[in-house]
Design a protein around this nucleic acid. Structure first.
Lengths: 141, 141
DNA sequence: GTATCTGCAAAACATTTGCAATTCT
DNA sequence: AGAATTGCAAATGTTTTGCAGATAC
């Protein structure tokens, strides 16, 4: 993740977000841990350092980040929403064994999709589910 | 939707599902109404005819259908899971105005995706979000 | 007659809301 | 001081679970 040479604080300001302590820490977490976390994972990780942090603040912050377009939502399972600070067009692969989500580079321009003429497309989401290499190896041994 | 000349009852049996009255009615609803309904929509529609029906049964049934691979889950919003009795590979477009979901034909073989070599892919999901033609027209007038 | 299926009520879980206390400028 | 932000507690909405009664083969 590259913020174009900006600090997190500058990047947030640039995108119309007041850089509060919590918001900076949450965004820092997102770019340092490219693990596509859900709200609870973010909360637990930061709670160690910021014991006053509440889940509500994480929810509020993720909602704000989404509105300002500096994160995208990943809805693969119905049970949890995960987040990605990389908003460039790319896909995801979720391993159903370990639960990890991996980035998948994709060239949307390659995609020949019929029947989209009558729609104004604002978002494109592509994801795969299956088993990752590590989990395949694990089963063999 | 084509069941290959089978009745719903035969189709369910064929797929290892005991064709109870509720299951038949639910599956019939899915193939007659290609509206990608959520559990509540299915429940409300059938409740008129089957007043003893419970949401639990709809949930149970949808879980069973998924396991037997005669429906697929559509997770576009974090708030609701929707279902499709068409399990052939295709994408979806959700209009954020009216909430309708439309099928989008796609040829997966056209898709050039890098970095999937190390994964065993079991499912591919493609969806778009935006505004449909009807809702664009509506705003103009 | 025994397995399975259904459906009620309660529980579980993620997310949102209302509001009071806190923080920042 | 005034506006925005935080965080608690309660509410909401969806889905799951436990279990008793009904149904089917």
């Amino acid at each position: 993740m590259d913020l174009g040479g900006l600090t997190v604080e500058e990047y947030l300001k640039e995108n119309g977000i007041k850089p509060s302590y919590q918001r900076i820490r949450i965004f820092e977490y997102l770019i340092k841990n490219q693990n596509h976390p859900n709200v609870d994972t973010i909360y637990r990780a930061l709670y160690k350092d910021i014991p006053t942090l509440s889940r509500t603040t994480v929810y509020n912050t993720m909602k704000l980040f989404r509105e300002k377009n500096i994160t995208q939502m990943i809805n693969i399972e119905d049970t949890e929403t995960r987040y990605d600070a990389d908003v460039s067009p790319h896909g995801h692969f979720k391993c159903t064994q370990c639960g990890n989500i991996f980035d998948v580079r994709m060239d949307v321009s390659d995609m020949e999709v019929e029947g989209l003429d009558s729609f104004r497309v604002e978002e494109t989401h592509l994801y795969f589910k299956g088993t990752c290499d590590d989990c395949i190896e694990e089963k063999k041994s």
